[in-house]
């Protein structure tokens, strides 16, 4: 062994450190660029959408173009609101939830109870694939099944079915993940006391995983709240408030789609978007709060 001098390399350390700094600078610039759209979107929605938000916005249905045009010409705010959209959205999401939540939780528990089994793995893979299916395709499915097959026309039910299929995989997987996080000892404690199996699930597993289940449910609702494509194909829209599941129904995103290219209605469109975004974000925040508080 001999200590010999380094082979004749050039000293490149200054250049390397400069490159290092330039790269860091690029990273910072690009990261800043990445978050700029969300800031711009929020800013645009707030600056353009706030002025139409008033009581009428929540209580009255959308005006017709003529009313809106008159108001715009006179420099007034557009009369009316999006009550037909808000009620439609809430109505369809409620029905979708009623259809999707109980089934999803049960399937989620099934997957948890059958870890590593072939059939359960198949179901899990199919659930994953379902989660990746574009929502517009689910709209087509609900159109074929419900609009053509059941209600013989555009209907709230068809929209709800499309939304429910979207919610299924989200809740199934979050239920399974939640169950996996519950210490097995809790389950065993129940079993050791001779508690019957269904009671362990109902009285032990579901309550201990409650916050996880809630988080999954809220996130899935917030995902489908803003969905537009499946509703375009299934519920069409309506100018009045409708709570009949066999009839066409409006929804907030549908109203945005309907009016976004209409200069007379654009103020209302910005307000609808602001409302929709605020609604979605609020649900997201509540979901995160719940999961943080209990975990």
């Amino acid at each position: 062994m001999e200590t010999k001098a380094l082979i004749g390399e050039k000293d490149n350390s200054n250049w390397r450190e400069l490159k290092n700094k330039l790269f860091f600078g690029t990273v910072v610039v690009l990261a800043t660029l990445t978050i700029s759209p969300i800031l711009l979107i929020v800013y645009t929605l707030l600056s353009k959408g706030l002025k139409q938000i008033n009581f009428d916005f929540f209580l009255k249905v959308a005006p017709d173009t003529l009313q809106a045009m008159t108001a715009v010409r006179n420099g007034e705010i557009i009369p009316g609101g999006i009550a037909n959209g808000i009620t439609g959205t809430l109505f369809m999401v409620l029905i979708a939830s009623l259809m999707a939540i109980p089934v999803s939780i049960v399937i989620g528990i099934f997957l948890y109870e059958n870890q590593g089994k072939k059939y359960a793995n198949l179901i899990r893979s199919l659930t994953d694939i379902l989660q990746g299916v574009p929502s517009v395709v689910l709209g087509l499915i609900a159109y074929i099944w419900i609009v053509q097959g059941v209600t013989k026309g555009f209907s709230a039910l068809a929209g709800s079915v499309a939304l429910a299929i979207m919610m299924l995989p989200l809740i199934i997987r979050s239920t399974e993940e939640t169950m996996k996080m519950i210490p097995i000892s809790i389950k065993e404690a129940g079993a050791a006391l001779g508690v019957p199996y269904h009671k362990i699930i109902l009285r032990v597993m579901i309550p201990s995983g409650f916050s996880g289940l809630m988080t999954g449910i809220l996130l899935s609702i917030s995902r489908v709240l803003g969905e537009t494509a499946p509703l375009m194909l299934t519920t069409l829209g309506s100018t009045t408030v409708n709570f009949n599941i066999t009839k066409p129904t409006s929804a907030v995103p549908l109203q945005i789609w309907e009016f976004y290219n209409n200069p007379n209605m654009i103020d209302l469109v910005w307000s609808s978007s602001l409302f929709l975004m605020a609604f979605v974000l609020t649900l997201n925040i509540i979901a995160k709060r719940i999961s943080m508080r209990y975990s």
């Binding site: 990445t34 978050i35 759209p37 969300i38 800031l39 711009l40 979107i41 929020v42 645009t44 929605l45 917030s222 709240l225 803003g226 969905e227 537009t228 494509a229 995103p253 945005i256 789609w257 976004y260 290219n261 469109v269 910005w270 978007s273 929709l276 975004m277 979605v280 974000l281 997201n284």
Partner: peptide, 21 residues
Amino acid sequence: TLVDLLAGVPSIVYGLWGFYT
């Protein structure tokens, strides 16, 4: 958190924002 917010923006709002900005 800000990046996560991007995932919460509905597609139609992206469309609207893109359309006008």
